[in-house]
């Protein structure tokens, strides 16, 4: 077995390029799906709050599906299954324009939107009922009460859970490897194949993942502290 030599990986221009592109792809997928998931989560919450029973049941079914089916299976269903149902023209276009990444962002975004919307809903439920009463007593309508009193508190309550699930989303970007996206884990596996230096290449990727996850966790903790100071009862 060759001796431990980190620099053989880092200084090699080919490997360096692969690592850099892999990291970029990971961030693109993570950020893209995060934005998609957050926007969709707000929509899901609004739909859930409407008085229509059908709409509520729809959201419940959506959340239930995405929380109970493994994320990898969801990715496969989208990339292998649903793509085959698309018209050939669209399939061709996707094939040339990194369709894997598109499907990865869609699948991961849809999945995490379910978790984010539940986090927001829990945040809303933990706002004390007296707040809504006070808003009504002052004459605010439903929308006004939501906008100025309830949702600001709901979001602050939901920050810890949202941060946890954001870290999960970031980690799930590695699953895109299974459908061929050249993100960080994929890059590292390729480097290992070529250089036979598994330890060093894995270590680099692990440290990069860890650094970013810890960054999100600590930024989240700081946000959570600020939120709690403002809303402490």
């Amino acid at each position: 077995m060759k001796g431990f030599d980190l620099m053989a990986i880092l200084l090699n221009p080919e490997f360096g390029r692969m690592l850099w592109h892999g990291a970029q792809m990971t961030l693109v997928i993570a950020l893209g799906s995060w934005l998609f998931a957050m926007s969709l989560a707000v929509v899901l919450l609004v739909v859930r709050l409407t008085p229509s029973r059908i709409a509520q049941r729809g959201v419940v079914a959506y959340v239930s599906y995405h929380q109970n089916v493994p994320t990898l299976v969801q990715l496969m269903l989208w990339y292998f299954g649903i793509s085959s149902l698309l018209p050939d023209v669209l399939q061709g276009w996707l094939g040339e324009h990194s369709g894997e990444s598109v499907f990865a962002i869609i699948a991961l975004g849809l999945c995490q939107a379910a978790y984010f919307s539940e986090d927001l809903r829990s945040g809303l439920r933990s706002v004390p009922p007296g707040q809504a009463e006070a808003a009504r007593a002052l004459g605010h309508g439903y929308v006004g009460a939501m906008r100025h009193v309830l949702m600001p508190q709901a979001i602050r309550n939901a920050v810890p859970a949202l941060v946890n699930h954001s870290v999960s989303l970031f980690k799930n970007s590695s699953l895109a490897m299974a459908i061929g996206v050249a993100e960080l884990t994929h890059a590292v596996k390729e480097i290992e194949n070529q250089s036979f230096r598994a330890f060093e290449s894995y270590l680099i990727a692990t440290l990069m993942y860890l650094a970013f996850s810890l960054l999100i966790m600590f930024a989240g903790a700081w946000l959570g502290r600020r939120a709690r100071v403002a809303t402490a009862r």
Binding site: K171, S174, Y202, T206, Y209, S213, M217
Partner: peptide, 18 residues
């Protein structure tokens, strides 16, 4: 615990496999 929470499961599988 922090490593398990911060590193993707896929990465950990690769480590254990190796």
């Amino acid at each position: 615990v922090y490593v398990a929470r911060g590193v993707p499961l896929l990465m950990i599988i690769l480590w254990v496999y190796f």
